[in-house]
């Protein structure tokens, strides 16, 4: 299944605001992170510290079943405030 993933911050600077990856269901959060790491292996150190949000809620490791309607995002370490 093709899944669109929103990217932010440093990841967005490097890969743009969304990427599309191929994943087989059900998906773990590590699957998302590793699929993006394959697009650019130099991002691995940021990705291992990132979390996944589905429909704007953090999710724990999974496994998850994603539908095309779901909004998936990778949340690198936050630095607001």
């Amino acid at each position: 299944m093709r899944v669109k993933i929103k990217l932010f911050a440093f990841l967005q600077d490097r890969l743009g605001s969304t990427v599309t990856v191929d994943l087989s269901q059900p998906v773990t959060t590590d699957d998302f992170l590793m699929a993006v790491a394959q697009l650019d292996p130099s991002l691995k150190s940021v990705l291992v510290n990132s979390r996944i949000a589905v429909n704007q809620e953090f999710v724990t490791q999974g496994p998850l079943t994603i539908t095309p309607a779901d909004e998936v995002a990778i949340i690198p370490p936050v630095s607001g405030g």
Binding site: A9, F10, F58, I75, P76, V78, S79, G80, G81
Partner: peptide
């Protein structure tokens, strides 16, 4: 609130320092 915001709210800073640009803290 501010302590939790700094860990749980998806906001990021890109800091322009005189030596280089830094993402995050």
């Amino acid at each position: 609130v501010i302590d939790t915001l700094k860990h749980e709210v998806p906001i990021w800073k890109k800091e322009y320092d005189t030596d280089k640009v830094r993402w995050g803290n």
